[in-house]
Design a protein around this nucleic acid. Structure first.
Lengths: 117, 117
DNA sequence: TTGACATATTCCCATATCAGCATATGATTC
DNA sequence: GAATCATATGCTGATATGGGAATATGTCAA
């Protein structure tokens, strides 16, 4: 197997820095393809391609407006990522001893196979 | 240019589902390579490879313990990702009109090139 | 040193990427 | 329909992946 396609899920789609930039831009409102291209100094074909990936994983939506196609953010698509990353929040937020407590909790809930290794 | 290497940053490293599983497991405490392999039903060489990637992007740390190498999570490495994703939080959290207000704010701060498109 | 266990590395292969460029498709207006 | 603007797609080339299997390296113990 090779690497998962970028269209596999938002995690893969968003691994590409330019696509993150595009999403950042779209936070401020919908844009046409050329609009994105001009704002970010990307070339039109690449913008189209990146937007296609983002659309496939549900991170943007499109709307036809005359000759143009207006792309807008679909922020909800990032919620699963947010949920996953947030589960690690305590590892940089809480004080060390509270973290230790938490880990103790977790370990007392062991279940698969044998405990530890 | 090809796709960014998985070792380019945490975003890329974490795009691989198995690596996320490994991090999830390490949340519960440090593990040896074989420990990870057994818990997740992966094969040892792949675990070593994935852990290598995770180490290179700073998401795990290692410690030698006899024949074993104990890997532990370095949660802080995920903070940049968390920060980025969190900036989209409002798009699924807040009520629609508050969001609208927020967007209005953003747009009145326009700056690069010409406004809109 | 030798043996045994734990981990890391190497090679192969099918697959996918992304940029750049050219070109095709779409939509609008004349 | 033809010209035009906007967007999408196709192709190439350089690069990287990730699993599998084999093997190398490391570490300890007798």
């Amino acid at each position: 197997m090779a690497r998962r396609p970028t269209t596999f899920d938002p995690f893969n789609a968003v691994a590409e820095p330019r696509r993150r930039k595009i999403l950042n831009l779209l936070m401020r409102g919908e844009r046409s393809v050329n609009g994105v291209a001009r704002m970010l100094h990307f070339k039109q074909p690449q913008v189209s391609k990146h937007l296609r990936v983002l659309k496939q994983v549900g991170l943007v939506r499109v709307r036809g407006a005359g000759k143009q196609r207006m792309y807008r953010l679909n922020g909800k698509g990032l919620k699963p990522m947010h949920d996953w990353v947030s589960s690690f929040e305590r590892f940089w937020n809480e004080s060390f001893d509270r973290l230790a407590d938490y880990l103790k909790e977790l370990q007392s809930e062991e279940k698969p196979h044998g405990p530890k290794e």
